[in-house]
Computed example of a mutant assay.
Amino acid sequence: MSATRATDTVFAVAPAPVWRLLWLWVPMLAVAALIVATTLQSAQRTPHELGLTLPFLAVLTAVLSAAYFRRRIQLQGRDLEVGSTFYRKRVAVDALQLDQARVVDLAEHGSLKPVIKTNGYGMPGFLSGHYRMRDRRKAFCLLTDASRVLYLPLRDGSVLMLSPEKPRDLLAALQALAAPGRTH
């Protein structure tokens, strides 16, 4: 048990600016203003309806804002665990194709960009959760900085796309962890 604890390592996620939350807050404020305006102008609606709707919107906005800050990349024993917003992915290091892993800039490698959100949380410059790549492969993403993305293909054909603060350090740690288990 202590051998597993000795290999637990947390890798910092590349920071994502707080101003990106404007992509959440501005639409929520617009919805709240629209609800207030239509409720006050309608004879069929009562202002009491606002007593349920506006607090619900406030709580929803608070939960989505708090989720934005939930990001973690950690090596636990021989597993890579990624937590992001409402999503979590745990992958055995042996399931990674580290010989094909690389650090990429998505502006230069547009073919590697996740394009279809299947079950995720996203806004411009921030992707979290499950996506599809251009070539239809599944991808689990924690992307906060598209200029330094660690692209990790898995043996099952899917992909992990991560934005650690130091992607080369994470890749080196994964390669070092996989080295003793290699049979080649």
Rank of each mutant, 00 (worst) to 15 (best):
D135S: 13
T183Y: 03
I35Y: 11
T46N: 07
V18D: 05
M133N: 10
R155H: 14
D94A: 13
A67R: 05
A32H: 08
A92S: 11
R102G: 04
V26P: 00
S128N: 06
G122R: 08
A139F: 01
A43D: 12
V103E: 11
A16G: 10
R20Y: 06
D169V: 08
L143A: 03
A62N: 09
H48T: 08
I73Y: 08
Y68W: 11
L160D: 06
P47L: 10
D99E: 15
A107H: 13
Q100F: 04
T144F: 13
P164L: 07
A139H: 01
K138P: 00
T39Y: 05
L57W: 11
V13T: 13
A3T: 10
L54I: 14
I116A: 05
L54M: 04
F86H: 05
P180M: 10
S42I: 04
W19H: 11
N119K: 01
L34M: 07
S2R: 14
A67M: 15
L96K: 10
H184I: 02
I35H: 05
R155E: 15
C141R: 11
L57Y: 09
E81H: 09
S163E: 03
E49F: 12
V36E: 04
A67V: 05
L96D: 10
Q76F: 00
R5P: 02
D169K: 13
L29Q: 01
S158P: 02
L160S: 05
A176T: 13
T118S: 11
T9Y: 01
P55M: 07
L75V: 10
R45K: 09
A33K: 01
I73S: 09
S128Q: 08
G83C: 09
F11N: 01
A58S: 06
Q41E: 10
V103A: 06
H48V: 10
R72V: 02
R136Y: 05
L21E: 05
F69M: 02
L112H: 10
R20L: 14
A101R: 04
D135H: 12
A146D: 06
P124E: 11
D145Y: 12
D169H: 09
F56A: 15
D156H: 05
M28E: 00
R90V: 14
V13K: 03
Y121K: 02
A66T: 06
A173P: 03
V26N: 01
A14E: 04
G51D: 08
L96M: 15
Q74T: 07
L52Q: 03
P153C: 12
W25A: 12
G110M: 05
G157V: 03
V104Q: 00
D135V: 09
Q175H: 02
E108K: 15
T53H: 02
Q74V: 05
D135K: 08
V82P: 14
Q41S: 15
L22W: 12
G77H: 02
R72Y: 03
G51H: 09
T53R: 09
R134I: 10
K117C: 12
P55Q: 07
L50M: 12
Y87F: 15
K113I: 04
D169P: 00
A33C: 08
A12M: 04
F86T: 04
R70H: 09
V13L: 12
F140Y: 13
F86V: 05
D145I: 04
D145G: 02
